[in-house]
Design a binder for these strands. Structure first.
Lengths: 139, 139
DNA sequence: GTAGATGCAAAGTATTTGCGACAAG
DNA sequence: CTTGTCGCAAATACTTTGCATCTAC
């Protein structure tokens, strides 16, 4: 396993407060992609005195420190996820909202190539696929 | 050239009002990706009495009718673009904000394949590349 | 001890909506 | 005519911020 969020904070000189420790813990333990409201709810169960302003400030700080990433999936609120070595993109079930993470090296390479073809160095990218389940009960 | 926005409205049974005609015209003539505020400014030059609520209502209606697409590029406001046959994705210069449109069939195919691999039919997707210009004056 | 963090409530943005007046088909 | 649209201002949703207090280092 990789570094904990707390370790990352220490390495990056981010001051650790109780609130941040709690937010870090909740994010580490979340396998989904909570929005700020949801995160606030989870965090409030541990410490009901934390304010939502702190949650907003903290996710922003963690994002800037490369600890979390922010996703802005279609039409919704900003959602967050812990950033680990393994980069991945998202496939979103438009019926259920379920999110599947995937990696496709070939797509990654092609993206780089496209950027270069246009004279750019690729710095970041966003790839989201939206789909519906192909299953047994064909409509 | 393809159908005009006005023709599309007729085909889809979208009632044409003066305001909608103006918004349609401005969008057709825009080669960039204006946000609602910017669109409102442009539209106001033609008819200063149009309200921003109408602009919001109209872009939403046009989006639902498949006439415009909405983009939510990183951290900004929603931006709109006329939807034509030729689908394309966007490469955004993170220094200047310039937007380059591109098409890459191979990436498109791979996206479909990835979705299928996970048991999904690809319905929609979002691909944005963010880059910096590689140029003569290397920093 | 001091710079930075927190909680609160107030202020910003972006967008949507209720309503009476008005216009398109 | 009648249904849907418009303009306006008020409402909503999400996020940020000023300020006084408190806390990590």
């Amino acid at each position: 396993m990789s570094e904990t969020i707390e370790q990352k904070c220490l390495n990056k000189g981010v001051k650790l407060t109780d609130q941040r420790r709690i937010i870090a813990k909740v994010m580490s333990e979340s396998n989904d992609h909570p929005d700020v409201d949801e995160l606030y709810k989870r965090v409030s169960k541990i410490d009901p005195k934390i304010s939502i302003a702190t949650v907003y400030r903290t996710v922003k700080l963690f994002e800037e420190s490369g600890i979390l990433t922010k996703h802005e999936f279609k039409g919704g609120k900003a959602r967050y996820e812990e950033l680990n070595e393994g980069h991945h993109d998202h496939l979103i079930d438009i019926k259920t909202g379920e999110i599947i993470e995937f990696v496709d090296d070939e797509i990654e390479k092609l993206q780089k190539k496209v950027a270069e073809k246009h004279g750019y160095k690729l710095v970041d990218h966003k790839l989201e696929l939206y789909g519906v389940k192909i299953n047994s009960n064909n409509e």
